[in-house]
């Protein structure tokens, strides 16, 4: 029998190694909170340009830098996105300004508003300065429980005579309000 012993021990050890970790039960872990100041939230229907999560709303042609802690420059065809749970009774609100410096070159500016690719309103700006406007949203243009894109297209932009850089208008906030 002696020669069998090492083999037997080997086999037993291999069998023992087949014991994996048994499934376990765990208590609920500490509950996470949104990191302070992270703006950790779902995409909403309105954004201030100095919101911590404002970048999530910007599709293109809005400057990444926040000026004076409150607003951003737009460029040729600024586009933003919003999530709307419901669409009934909403208006589109725009908090913006035409800068004196750009106005001197462009003169009066008209902003054309597009929602999901469809033109739905115009805002005329015959003089420089800050403005807050609300325009109604035609029924059927906005989609409920979906991301909606809004383009705010200026008809004229300021073009730098030295390097060709472009500036549109100053944007402080935009979105849908009841």
């Amino acid at each position: 029998m002696r020669p069998f012993r090492p083999v037997l021990v080997s086999v037993l050890l291999v069998i023992l190694t087949a014991c994996g970790e048994a499934p376990e039960a765990y208590a609920p872990p500490p509950q996470r909170q949104a990191p302070e100041g992270s703006g950790y939230a779902y995409l909403g229907r309105y954004v201030h340009m100095n919101d911590i999560n404002a970048e999530a709303y910007l599709v293109h042609d809005v400057a990444p830098a926040v000026e004076s802690g409150a607003w951003r420059w737009t460029w040729r065809r600024p586009e933003l996105r919003f999530y709307l749970r419901e669409t009934a009774g909403l208006e589109f609100a725009l908090d913006f300004a035409i800068a004196d410096a750009t106005f001197r070159q462009t003169g009066p500016v008209t902003l054309t508003l597009f929602l999901n690719g469809q033109r739905f309103s115009e805002v005329r700006c015959p003089r420089p300065g800050a403005r807050q406007v609300r325009v109604p949203v035609p029924a059927g243009l906005a989609h409920a429980n979906a991301v909606n894109t809004v383009v705010i297209q200026p008809d004229k932009v300021w073009v730098s005579p030295t390097d060709g850089a472009v500036l549109g208008f100053i944007l402080s906030g935009a979105g849908f309000v009841p």
Binding site: A34, G39, Y40, L43, N53, A56, Y57, Y83, V147
Partner: peptide, 17 residues
């Protein structure tokens, strides 16, 4: 089944995790 709105601010939350 339904679809939730996209989340924002997740980058920061990921780093915290």
């Amino acid at each position: 089944e339904s679809e939730a709105p996209p989340l924002s601010g997740m980058r920061r939350a990921a780093i915290e995790e």
